[in-house]
């Protein structure tokens, strides 16, 4: 896998790197690859790390999920019950759980990149 957290671990602690990769794979594997990619792109854009996804051809469910994902980096305490219910309506409860984990991890990965965690870890 790629990403700053795994890269820093891979260089220093192979066992933890493997377990982190397995956790991320399980989380992302519970959603469609297309949604995972869109969430990562949308969250990265909030952090100023690239362009957000083109949503013009996306269905309502996906647009609702992306609007929610964009709130995670800086507005997580302001997300309302209605916003959460809208995502759960489209993804179901198990899907919402996976989506919450994937979105929060996407945010953390961006932040780890912004402090250049691999460089700090000697990579």
């Amino acid at each position: 896998m790629s990403g700053p957290i795994h890269a820093s671990l891979a260089a220093t602690n192979g066992a933890l790197a493997e377990k982190y990769a397995a956790f991320v794979a399980a989380s992302e594997g519970a959603l469609s690859p297309e949604l995972v990619a869109l969430v990562r792109q949308a969250v990265a854009a909030v952090h100023g790390m690239g362009e957000g996804p083109d949503e013009s051809a996306l269905d309502e469910a996906t647009r609702t999920a992306l609007a929610y994902a964009r709130r995670m980096p800086f507005e997580h305490t302001a997300i309302s019950d209605d916003e959460a219910a809208a995502v759960t309506h489209h993804l179901g409860e198990p899907g919402f759980v996976a989506f919450s984990v994937v979105t929060a991890l996407a945010d953390a990965e961006c932040r780890a990149a912004q402090v250049d965690l691999p460089e700090l870890s000697g990579v």
Binding site: P4, I5, S8, L9, A11, T12, N13, L16, Y20, V101, A104, L105, D107, A108, E109, R111, A112, V115, L117, L120, S121
Partner: peptide
């Protein structure tokens, strides 16, 4: 630092 980076990322997420 790598282990700390993992920890803080997990705590945050």
């Amino acid at each position: 630092i790598a282990e700390l980076g993992l920890g803080v990322s997990l705590f945050l997420a």
